[in-house]
């Protein structure tokens, strides 16, 4: 399995005397995977994302993207492999219209006009925003703006998409739209997705979850494994999936519940087995 992202012993301090924002972080992500990084505000999640994209000049540790070590000399080359979506939909809309916005990155790369046209068309189709191509940003909802941001990223044909709390300012429908698009993109284009979030619902489709606290990785594994440690997640100020919260509430009422994590459907099945089955 080839690792498209590899981080080894990454440490970063914003101020010399402060505690490190990242403290000896190492992990790797296989090509095509969806990895969610969770942690409360200030846990180091965004610092980590910014280091991968060369937005932060770290002094200790190494980052490899698609087999190449990130250095000052090749930061632009590495960056062209990564597309980032940030939290605030209004802060990343630069074009006057939807199609201008999607074309912005390509124009900067001096891509020929015909090809820009083709790539913009295809990117807008991927995020289902083709009919909005002539709209202005103030005519769009937050979810639609984030989809345009995603189209701008897709048009650059990156290998990796990093979502830095990209849904946290959206309403529930906007959030579903974005997650739906991401799932489809992964299936169709095999893009590697790194999502940084504090919404546990958004981690259920991930292949792996990395839990960060005070700049350190304190746990990583499949969602079912991470969710089963709900006491740890709650202690870190994170949410746990609803089924797990219910299980904790039942334990307090002296009801024996299954050890392993199960989703809501699994919990209803278990209740049916224990209570209704003849």
């Amino acid at each position: 399995m080839n690792d498209i992202i590899k981080v080894s012993h990454l440490t970063y301090k914003y101020l010399q005397n402060e505690l490190p924002a990242l403290d000896d972080v190492s992990f790797s992500i296989p090509s095509g995977a969806w990895v969610a990084i969770v942690g409360h505000n200030g846990s180091g999640k965004s610092t980590l994302a910014h280091s991968l994209d060369g937005l932060i000049d770290f002094k200790q540790g190494q980052v490899f993207i698609d087999g190449v070590e990130l250095t000052e000399a090749n930061v632009w080359k590495v960056r062209s492999k990564i597309g980032m979506i940030f939290q605030n939909p209004d802060n990343q809309f630069v074009g006057a219209t939807v199609e201008d916005d999607v074309a912005f990155g390509l124009e900067n790369m001096a891509v020929p006009h015909d090809e820009i046209q083709a790539r913009v068309d295809s990117a807008l189709a991927q995020v289902q925003m083709s009919e909005f191509r002539h709209k202005q940003p103030d005519q769009l909802s937050g979810g639609q703006k984030q989809r345009v941001a995603l189209a701008g990223v897709i048009a650059m044909q990156p290998k990796i998409i990093i979502l830095d709390e990209a849904t946290s300012m959206l309403d529930p429908i906007g959030r579903q739209e974005i997650l739906g698009v991401i799932k489809r993109l992964r299936r169709k284009l095999g893009i590697t997705v790194l999502s940084i979030t504090h919404e546990m619902d958004e981690t259920t489709s991930a292949d792996e979850i990395i839990v960060l606290n005070d700049g350190k990785i304190i746990e990583s594994g499949k969602p079912s494994l991470i969710y089963a440690h709900s006491d740890l997640l709650l202690k870190l100020g994170l949410d746990v999936p609803y089924s797990q919260r219910l299980k904790e509430a039942l334990k307090l009422r002296h009801i024996q519940t299954p050890q392993a994590y199960s989703d809501e459907k699994g919990m209803v099945d278990w209740l049916w087995q224990s209570l209704l089955k003849a």
Binding site: L246, A249, R253, I255, M267
Partner: peptide, 29 residues
């Protein structure tokens, strides 16, 4: 969650709104 349980044949006098209410109802069952 309670609504999903109802679909599987469970009965609630009134649908619970909070985790505590639901856990109480299930404990009673």
């Amino acid at each position: 969650f309670a609504f999903e349980m109802v679909k599987r044949g469970f009965h609630f006098d009134k649908l619970p709104l909070t985790e505590q209410e639901l856990a109480d109802d299930i404990a009673a069952m």
